[in-house]
Amino acid sequence: MQPFLPGLTMPPRPTETRDARVALARYPDITTEDLCRYAKFLGASAELLVDSLFMRFGERVFPMPEHERCDRALILPDRAPIRIQVKTRHSVTACGDYVFNLRQRSERGATGRGPYDSCDFDILAMVVLSEGVVRFTADWHLRQIIHASEIPELRRHPRRSLDAALARLGHTDAIPGNWIDDLDLAA
């Protein structure tokens, strides 16, 4: 076996990542136990999907430190920072919708530290990881829903909800090609 760097051999893969590889190979058809066990892996995956979208949009986005109340900072052309919170859902309701209940996670368990405050972030990025789609919103509700019927449109026009959220915040000047849609799209 050829070492990656002269004199450097890769350490054996930690047990947790070996186990994650087996469990997550079946995602989204995994057990609730595995979903909880690998929540950090899936959360990071959702953040990377959001990063990928921002890169494809030509936007400047930066990860925030773990202790911050938001996950990303989007820097607009006028240098204004927009705080982005990324949330993901893995399970659907009986009618195929994805429901996001905005609670902060906790290192001590899945119950979280309670709901977010409206001053914690500017835009929510809701990720349906199994569908590979993101919906952005600046509308403040502790319970948000992505309806199954929205997913094809989110795939076809992935930037539209971001532009609507920016317009809702009054940043129409940051929208490429000018904003001409109705603000009801951001709801």
Rank of each mutant, 00 (worst) to 15 (best):
Q2T: 13
P3H: 10
F4I: 14
F4G: 07
M10I: 11
M10R: 15
R13W: 10
T15R: 15
E16C: 03
A20E: 07
R21G: 06
V22D: 04
R26Q: 14
I30R: 05
A39Y: 09
A39H: 12
S45K: 11
L48P: 00
R56V: 12
F57D: 01
E59P: 00
F62W: 14
M64N: 07
E66Q: 12
E68L: 11
D71V: 10
D71Y: 10
R72S: 01
R72E: 08
A73T: 12
A73V: 15
L76Y: 12
P77M: 09
R79W: 09
A80Y: 09
A80R: 14
I84D: 03
V86E: 03
H90T: 13
S91G: 04
S91E: 12
C95P: 00
D97Y: 13
F100E: 02
F100A: 04
R105V: 11
S106E: 02
S106P: 01
E107P: 03
E107C: 03
G109N: 06
G109A: 08
T111W: 05
R113N: 11
R113H: 08
R113I: 10
G114I: 11
Y116F: 15
D120Q: 08
A125N: 05
A125G: 06
L129T: 05
S130M: 03
V134N: 01
V134G: 02
R135G: 02
L142R: 15
R143W: 12
Q144F: 12
Q144L: 14
I145K: 14
S149I: 12
L154S: 01
R156E: 08
A164V: 03
L166H: 09
A167R: 07
A167S: 08
L169H: 04
H171E: 03
N178V: 13
I180F: 09
I180C: 06
D182P: 00
D182C: 11
A186P: 00
A186H: 06
A187D: 04
